[in-house]
Design a protein around this nucleic acid. Structure first.
Lengths: 107, 107
DNA sequence: ACTGTATATGTCGACTGTCTACTTATGAAT
DNA sequence: ATTCATAAGTAGACAGTCGACATATACAGT
């Protein structure tokens, strides 16, 4: 499943992945894959720009580090990010209720 | 709620609205509003082009009529449209399961 | 030594789709 | 006359995704 379908909910996904602790981009993609049972397979071309967006919005803070000779940018949820995540969860419920209600076959 | 959040699911919504019988664009928007408890408020600038898209894809067939002096384009689900709707429902379940699983707080 | 794979981040341009605002038009009510 | 509801549509700006590419390191296998 691509981010195109996930569009509008990618931020929530990213924020939720960071809830349990800081992670770097690559690890976020793998975490999302694992937590969704392989359904969510987001390309780097979608995730990295999104992470930068969240950073600009102050929902996450990123810092560089070197692990095993490889450079990593590790992201951490900010307080504003946690609040945003809480809002996203509420929106998600509203969203699924609204659409599920239309798609569900209660004529 | 805008179509921007609904993005990727608008087709499913439109198809589902037409399941109970033919409707014209304006009526589809109102039906969606009613069926979602007012949450789904889609602008004509999103809906009309989407309807044309679905028509080009042969998922709906549209024809003109005059009702009360006003021209209407009434859309009807095609067989391919019903099949597409069935696929969309499966996708919707996969989608909500995947994202809900990540957003839900089962660490 | 070389090749391939996994790790890790990032950019670019094409593409798709949404949104605001606007246009056109009729009928009914004020 | 004017305004509101109905009805359909378009144009241009804008945002976000995606495939492909570029870059770089570590490690396993041959």
């Amino acid at each position: 499943m691509k981010a195109d379908i996930v569009r509008g909910h990618l931020d929530a996904l990213l924020l939720a992945t960071l809830e349990d602790g800081p992670l770097h981009g690559y690890a976020i993609i793998e975490s999302l894959q694992a937590r969704s049972g392989g359904i969510l397979d987001l390309p780097t071309g979608s995730v990295y720009p999104a992470l930068r967006r969240l950073e600009r919005a102050r929902y996450v803070s990123g810092k560089w580090s070197i692990v095993g000779g490889r450079r990593r940018r590790t992201y951490q949820l900010t307080r504003a990010g946690r609040q945003a995540l809480a809002r996203e969860r509420i929106d998600w419920t509203r969203f699924t209720t609204a659409i599920g209600g239309v798609l569900g076959s209660e004529a």
